[in-house]
């Protein structure tokens, strides 16, 4: 019963978070948090007060509220992705930057500039969320090779972003 419920609700919640902040990694984080809040607090659910869907959406809304509070306390972000490329390996990117429309286009363009092997491994790892073992199986290489391929791919992508950044600034 829980299994079906979760299979149905996870994509729903994900969509709800994405609509508010178009940022997949944040949406995943919030989905995770919501599901765990729900599981841990499942005793508090009372059928007389609404369907399980309403209940879990209530928890989700609460998490949205918390996130908004958190954001309100942060200094506001100025500038686009190109001004953050330099600090990409030292500091986490602000969520707000990730949510700018231009950022997705920028990343897509940078990805397109990579060797296809590198592109594939990045997509498999981060978009499809596959494990190194599954990626290795798919590409016919060892798990260890997947790790080093990923390492190189990340460096390449960073370099590609850096290369594009000044051009982007001028444009």
């Amino acid at each position: 019963m829980w299994r079906e419920f979760l299979n149905r609700e996870i994509p729903q919640l994900y969509g709800m978070f994405m609509r508010r902040w178009p940022n997949p990694s944040l949406a995943e984080e919030l989905v995770q948090k919501t599901i765990f809040d729900a599981v841990r607090g499942c005793d508090s659910y009372e059928p007389t007060k609404g369907s399980p869907e309403e209940w879990i959406f209530g928890i989700a809304r609460n998490n949205i509220r918390l996130e908004m509070r958190k954001r309100a306390s942060r200094p506001s972000v100025d500038g686009d992705i190109s001004s953050y490329v330099e600090t990409i390996d030292s500091e986490p990117l602000p969520d707000e930057v990730l949510e700018q429309k231009e950022t997705a286009a920028f990343v897509k363009a940078a990805l397109a500039g990579l060797a296809s092997k590198e592109q594939n491994v990045l997509r498999a790892k981060y978009i499809e969320d596959l494990s190194a073992r599954d990626i290795g199986r798919r590409l016919g290489i060892t798990e260890k090779a997947v790790h080093s391929l990923l390492y190189r791919a990340r460096i390449s992508l960073r370099r590609e972003l850096e290369r594009m950044a000044p051009a982007d600034k001028k444009g």
């Binding site: 997949p24 990730l98 990343v107 897509k108 997509r123 790892k125 992508l157």
Partner: peptide, 12 residues
């Protein structure tokens, strides 16, 4: 960061 960026290129 790379993980978060690459995710942006996926299905929204």
């Amino acid at each position: 960061n790379i993980s978060r960026l690459v995710k942006l290129a996926g299905d929204a």
